[in-house]
């Protein structure tokens, strides 16, 4: 795999993650990790790379975000990056990885099982491996991700990508998920599984992989991010950046925020401004605006204190705005542009 290092167009920083082939995106539930993964794939494609975006949780979230038919176990082109400067944009392909298909593919790629393959199915072993046997799911899912990053001759005519983005399981489970091959390698001391698991772990622990953590500026998600980073480091998995998602709008400056918090915003001036702007002024309206401002100021204060926690982590951080109307395809491109400006892609 040879990443394309095109010159960054004006307004965009060079990526902080040059030379990375696998971007793993995790985050606490509700922080928007799938959105961030999708936007990151678009951002990378905008730098001219051909990108594969993978999901492994069976939710078909990619299909919904990009407004396409539910994805099969097959790489499908779903979007192109934005043309920026003189770089021709790359494509975003998507793959929905389910464990059963991954297992069947793996068996056919590595083992000539013939009749035995059918027997495995008949004995309920395929079903056992993918639904009942704990942990095997994760081995199969990470195994397929590995295959996509490290394409080899066994998978003939497969597209080779410049980067793979994985919409991974949530922060609380990410180390276990990525380390599952390590666990398995510990379980199987010799044999083909051991060899396979070791190879996968070598990629995940190399500088070619980074794990980005998505958070919002609230206590619990930030705490989970801090813990997640510690867990990743302990498992010797490479920590990427912290993506701070859904940052509140900054329509009030520091002085106004302080006044809003203290309840000293000038009522009369606000009322005068409103009527100058052609709004019908009532006590209720002014009260509501001031109350909203106070609430906003309190939450901004909490955001600032959580931002300090993130900044103390010694990990690059990136900020994405909250979209009041929700996320659509246009919204994804907008987030992708923010990522490019800040050097995440």
């Amino acid at each position: 795999m040879s990443p394309v290092h095109g010159g960054a167009p004006a307004g965009n920083r060079r990526s902080d993650w040059r030379g990375v082939d696998l971007h793993v995106v995790t985050g606490k539930g509700g922080t928007g990790k799938s959105t961030v993964a999708a936007a990151l794939a678009l951002a990378l494609a905008s730098t001219g790379k051909n990108v594969l975006l993978c999901e492994v949780e069976g939710r078909q979230g990619i299909a919904r975000m990009f407004d396409v038919e539910p994805l099969p176990y097959e790489e499908r082109r779903i979007a192109r990056g934005l043309p920026l400067g003189d770089v021709a944009p790359g494509a975003v392909n998507a793959l929905h990885i389910d464990p059963e298909s991954a297992l069947l593919e793996y068996l056919s790629m590595y083992y000539k099982l013939g009749r035995a393959g059918k027997a495995l199915d008949r004995f309920g072993i395929i079903d056992f491996a993918t639904t009942i046997a704990p942990g095997v799911r994760d081995v199969l899912l990470t195994g397929k991700v590995y295959e996509a990053v490290q394409r080899n001759a066994r998978n003939k005519s497969a597209t080779v990508y410049d980067a793979v983005v994985l919409d991974a399981p949530p922060t609380g489970r990410i180390t276990q998920f990525l380390n599952v091959n390590g666990e398995l390698a510990g379980l199987a001391k010799v044999g083909p599984i051991k060899a396979q698991a070791d190879t996968v772990m070598t990629l995940f622990r190399s500088p070619r992989t980074v794990v980005h953590l998505v958070t919002v500026l609230e206590e619990m998600p930030v705490t989970e991010t801090v813990d997640g980073i510690a867990d990743l480091r302990e498992a010797r998995l490479p920590v990427g950046g912290v993506v701070i998602n859904m940052v509140r709008p900054r329509d009030l400056g520091p002085a106004d925020l302080a006044a809003a918090r203290a309840g000293t915003l000038d009522r009369e001036a606000v009322a005068a401004d409103l009527s100058r702007a052609g709004v019908e002024v009532s006590h209720e309206l002014v009260d509501s605006l001031l109350e909203e401002a106070r609430d906003h100021a309190a939450r901004r204060g909490l955001e600032d204190s959580q931002r300090e926690v993130v900044e103390a982590l010694d990990v690059p951080s990136y900020e994405l705005p909250r979209m009041p109307g929700g996320i659509d395809l246009g919204g994804l491109y907008e987030l992708a542009a923010r990522m490019r400006e800040q050097g995440l892609a």
Partner: peptide
């Protein structure tokens, strides 16, 4: 048949 296949994939020890 199945046992042999499993031995091949998993290794005898697992």
């Amino acid at each position: 048949l199945v046992t042999n296949a499993l031995t091949k994939i998993l290794g005898a020890q697992v």
